[in-house]
């Protein structure tokens, strides 16, 4: 006799971040990438009138601050003037980040229409991209992820397609067109690639997720507009774990939804945020604020996700939700529904 394992559960572990225009903290984070040794690279979109806040924060999963990468409007412009500066290191509308094997950073910029490349130490490597709608061109690149062959797959939002490039920007292929049919896209945003090389795309304005094989052939879709279970409102990003479980940042519903590998609804995560380490230090440095918080009413609202934009799963099946409008990342660990070890021989 066999028993099918049903469902999957998640345990909230902790929150990283606080609202900051610079230093330890985030400002409208939109995407993150996991490096080695617990390092995280978090892209901060920030407000356009605080160009100096547009940066990549480097920190660890344990919330140790390491530094910042990128220079927002700081090169060639006023701190308060984002301009349209395309000089080395500039980030105007940074949207998504991925890493290659050497842990170089690839950051899409929807305004500058380029993929900016930094070393993991923050040195400017270069940028590639030609704006347009022809072959090898893109318009408003958003989601980006390295595939199993070490190439870069990116979402070409303005042209409603997905494109594949080498790491140094040589065009390989593309798929997708505007529409609502199978394989068609409407202002797509984030994407992920599973262990078999399949490509999952957050088909933003069609309120659904689509799955393609590595060559761009349509495989499946799920989701439709709504607020119920399994329904989506403007999904921004998607992540797939080692078991094929699919996580969707259901942005306009302020939640994350979990689906099985067939796109069947499993559960909803609304958020469980607690005070982060950086949040604690902020309050300890501001006794008045600490007191305000202690007597505040409705503090339970603080735990909920607000406009989650990015979502990532790491090798340990930990879930990282980029809780954009709360300037933080909420982290969960998947709890297996069956025994996975750690039995030490003692009596049960």
């Amino acid at each position: 006799m066999t028993t099918d394992v049903q469902g999957v559960t998640y345990r909230y572990t902790h929150t990283i971040g606080r609202g900051e225009e610079a230093g330890p903290g985030f400002k409208n984070p939109v995407s993150l990438a996991r490096g080695a040794d617990g390092v995280m690279y978090v892209v901060n979109r920030a407000y356009d009138y605080r160009a100096d806040s547009k940066r990549i924060t480097v920190c660890t999963v344990d919330e140790d601050y390491i530094g910042e990468i990128g220079n927002g409007g700081r090169l060639g412009g006023d701190l308060m003037d984002v301009g349209e500066d395309a000089s080395d290191g500039s980030l105007v509308w940074p949207t998504s980040i991925t890493l290659d094997e050497e842990e170089n950073l690839y950051v899409t910029d929807e305004w500058l229409n380029r993929v900016a490349v930094f070393s993991k130490d923050g040195d400017w490597v270069g940028a590639w991209g030609v704006v347009g709608d022809g072959e090898g061109q893109f318009n408003q690149p958003s989601g980006i992820h390295m595939d199993l062959d070490g190439n870069m797959v990116l979402v070409d939002t303005g042209n409603n397609r997905v494109q594949k490039y080498t790491k140094d920007g040589k065009y390989i292929s593309s798929f997708g067109s505007f529409g609502a049919g199978d394989g068609q896209l409407n202002m797509p945003w984030g994407l992920d690639i599973d262990s078999e090389g399949n490509i999952f795309v957050a088909d933003w304005r069609n309120d659904r997720i689509q799955k393609f094989d590595a060559d761009g052939n349509f495989l499946m879709k799920f989701g439709s507009r709504g607020t119920g279970e399994g329904e989506l409102r403007r999904p921004t990003d998607v992540a797939v774990d080692s078991d094929g479980i699919i996580y969707v940042a259901d942005w306009d519903n302020d939640r994350v939804q979990v689906f099985d590998s067939n796109g069947m609804f499993i559960s909803i995560i609304m958020g469980d945020a607690t005070l982060s380490k950086w949040g604690v230090t902020k309050l300890e440095a501001n006794p008045d604020m600490k007191l305000q918080r202690e007597i505040a009413q409705g503090l339970e609202r603080e735990k909920f996700l607000r406009g989650p934009i990015g979502i990532e799963v790491d090798d340990e099946d930990r879930l990282f939700i980029v809780d954009s409008q709360r300037n933080r990342i909420q982290i969960y660990r998947k709890i297996p529904p069956f025994f996975v070890g750690l039995y030490d021989g003692a009596r049960l």
Partner: peptide, 9 residues
């Protein structure tokens, strides 16, 4: 009593 602006807005 309001929730203060920091750390989460």
């Amino acid at each position: 009593n309001a929730i203060p602006r920091y750390p989460y807005g």
